[in-house]
């Protein structure tokens, strides 16, 4: 019906014919019995609350992770293996090890997070639940925030818990333990938040793994630099609040901005 000879995109050989759509007058006799509920602007039975939506998605993601333990154990195992291999490769000298310990722990944590990122949206994208989330009446950022928080609980938190043990293995300076824990506590959420942006952008691509690393790793570098610097400074017995403040700033910046970026990226990816 509606084939324009000169359409906007200079296509004369287009034959995108569409048959006339029957927009007849309402053909259907209304036979609705009075008992059937009338559809108005549907009032959902539960009020839409941010907290409710957040908890719903969080609970779902944690349930899935608990039943699919591979996803939880893999990054943690990777972290442990990488860190324990270093003393074997470099030699057991306490001085060398304690010098490089902050870097090893942080690089391993960073790569372990990178390894686990793929799962954040990929399976949801494959089975169509991502579409359903995007079409839910809740704002996307709240659902995304819940997913990222779940991801951090599954991958980030175990890393933080096991890091002090591995630090012992690497002869980390005694003064540095608090700094190590604080930087991990502030830094690993940043890794999850920034990583989520990368995953959201690449989720529609079949083999987005390499692209994901290329996108995300540069964003991780500031966290790595300031975290290791804070731990090194702590080892010298100097105040490291400056570095910590910068990581905290990165954390709050990404916490407020990343969910919106992820939401927008997911919309593009599912387009």
């Amino acid at each position: 019906m509606t084939l324009k000879a000169q359409s906007t995109h200079e296509t004369e050989n287009i034959v995108g014919k569409i048959d006339k759509i029957l927009i007849d007058e309402a053909l259907i006799e209304s036979t609705a019995n009075d008992s059937s509920p009338l559809i108005s602007s549907a009032q959902p039975l539960q009020p839409l609350s941010y907290r409710h939506a957040f908890m719903l998605v969080l609970k779902r993601d944690l349930t899935i992770a608990m039943r699919h333990k591979d996803d939880m154990i893999n990054p943690l195992l990777f972290f442990v293996i990488v860190v324990t291999l270093f003393p074997l490769g470099i030699g057991p000298e306490a001085q060398t090890l304690s010098r490089i310990a902050p870097g090893i722990i942080w690089v391993a944590a960073l790569l372990a997070t990178l390894l686990s990122l793929d799962r954040l949206f990929k399976s949801d994208h494959h089975d169509g639940s991502l579409e359903q989330m995007l079409l839910s009446p809740h704002p996307i950022f709240i659902l995304v925030l819940a997913k990222i928080f779940a991801h951090w609980l599954i991958t980030g938190l175990p890393l933080i818990l096991i890091a002090p043990l591995l630090a012992v293995l690497l002869h980390l300076d005694e003064n540095s333990y608090t700094a190590l824990l604080l930087t991990l506590l502030l830094g690993t959420p940043v890794l999850s938040l920034l990583g989520a942006v990368g995953v959201a952008l690449t989720v529609g691509i079949k083999k987005g793994g390499v692209l994901l690393s290329l996108l995300v790793l540069p964003l991780y570098i500031p966290v790595l630099i300031f975290a290791t610097s804070a731990i090194d400074t702590a080892a010298l017995g100097l105040p490291y609040s400056g570095q910590l403040a910068i990581i905290a700033a990165l954390f709050f910046g990404s916490l407020t901005l990343a969910p919106f970026a992820v939401g927008a990226a997911l919309k593009v990816s599912t387009n």
Binding site: P44, L45, Q46, P47, L48, H52, A53, L56, V57, R60, T63, I64, R67, H68, S123, H126, D127, G128, S129, E131, Q132, M133, S136, P137, H138
Partner: peptide
């Protein structure tokens, strides 16, 4: 795509879908 998660039971899947869209 049906949006059904293999790791969850039939009921959990339906519950999540309903709750996500604001139903009890």
């Amino acid at each position: 795509l049906s949006g059904v998660k293999g790791e969850m039971t039939a009921e959990e899947n339906l519950d999540f879908n309903l709750a996500l869209h604001g139903y009890n």
